[in-house]
């Protein structure tokens, strides 16, 4: 919470050109990545061995039908023309239509994206809300030289949890809370209860990794001169830790947190499949299996853009929290 308060602070003295340069460079990088992403998604279909339409329709489909589809999709045009069409269509929000259902891909995505976004956002929120206090607490305890055992347990738990990927955590959660205890529903999205396990499965690993990071950063910050100054002012420990140390530690943790948020977005794919969550994760897998390439293309694009936006948001948040990072960037 303190971090947010810091974020609203204006840093007038930096000079406007630093911010302008930051904005220009960051936007440039975003556009470059976007271009790479879009081009990769476009080329994906063409890199496939064999004919994607034939693959989708199966070996028994009549030749005319395949040819008809190919022409409809413009697959016989020269590559550059197809690329131009693809870009043009994308700009107008047209991602083509599914080869299996014939529905527009944008419609399919629109119908399922909400569930995925909800899951990712909730999980990230839980991870942050758990990790910051936990990491701070562990740093303070470790710093005092007390509770060695607790510190050791925390570190090993977080190491183990960091190794276990979210879909295995999901399986364990299903087993414990769904099968053994029967507390929470384990499939689908119906009512608040159904969010509990998927969100937990996604958030548990990141929460501990982040907590470990906050702890390390916190320990480093506690060694700094300005914390010595805060102690010299005889502020109560609570104030030293929460108001003076934490915002600085969180700034450093945020970079890593951003990377993890990106991974968390990707992690939803697996977790959604464990819990039969009606989001994009199910769509991408089923469309890959059905060789429904336009849909795959669209969903990959959406995930990619999601990750890029997350990275952007993290960089901007970082720059607001710690103006020096903006200087470094420009």
């Amino acid at each position: 919470m303190t971090a947010l308060a810091v974020g609203t602070r204006r840093s007038s003295g930096l000079g406007d050109n630093v911010w302008v340069r930051f904005a220009v460079r960051r936007t440039g990088r975003l556009l470059l990545s976007l271009w790479v992403l879009v081009t990769a998604a476009f080329l994906m279909i063409h890199a496939l061995p064999g004919d994607p339409v034939r693959a989708a329709l199966g070996p028994t489909a009549p030749l005319e039908l395949v040819q008809q589809r190919r022409t409809a999709m413009g697959l016989d045009d020269p590559l550059w023309l197809q690329y131009a069409h693809y870009l043009g269509n994308l700009l107008s929000g047209d991602m083509g239509s599914s080869m299996t259902t014939g529905l527009p891909v944008s419609e399919i995505i629109g119908a399922r994206m909400g569930a995925t976004v909800e899951l990712a956002v909730l999980a990230f929120a839980v991870a942050v809300i758990v990790s910051v206090p936990l990491g701070t607490l562990m740093a303070v305890l470790a710093g005092d030289g007390r509770r060695r055992a607790g510190d050791w347990m925390f570190t090993s738990t977080s190491v183990v949890l960091a190794t276990i990927p979210e879909f295995l955590v999901a399986v364990c959660l299903v087993f414990v809370f769904g099968v053994q205890l029967g507390w929470a529903p384990v499939a689908g999205r119906s009512g608040p209860g159904s969010y509990v396990l998927p969100v937990l499965a996604l958030a548990l690993g990141p929460a501990f990794v982040l907590a470990r990071l906050v702890r390390v950063e916190m320990l480093a910050v506690l060694q700094t001169d300005y914390i010595r100054t805060a102690r010299a002012k005889r502020l109560p420990p609570r104030v030293v830790y929460l108001r003076h140390a934490l915002p600085n530690a969180v700034t450093a943790g945020l970079t890593m947190g951003g990377l993890m948020l990106g991974a968390l977005v990707a992690g939803t794919v697996l977790v959604e499949n464990v819990f039969a969550w009606p989001g994009l994760g199910g769509t991408i897998v089923s469309s890959i299996l059905a060789k429904d390439y336009p849909t795959v293309q669209g969903v990959v694009l959406v995930y990619g853009v999601g990750v890029l936006l997350v990275n952007l948001a993290v960089d901007v948040a970082l720059a607001l929290l710690d103006p020096r990072s903006a200087i470094r960037e420009s």
């Binding site: 470059l32 994906m44 890199a47 992690g267 794919v269 697996l270 890959i288 299996l289 990959v300």
Partner: peptide, 25 residues
């Protein structure tokens, strides 16, 4: 370097899914 820079921005699971499409199931 530029290629690597763009690629590391994406989580590896996403990259893996992308390549899984290209190389087939």
């Amino acid at each position: 370097g530029a290629l690597v820079n763009v690629a590391v921005a994406f989580p590896s699971l996403l990259l893996a899914l992308f390549f899984a499409v290209v190389f087939g199931v």
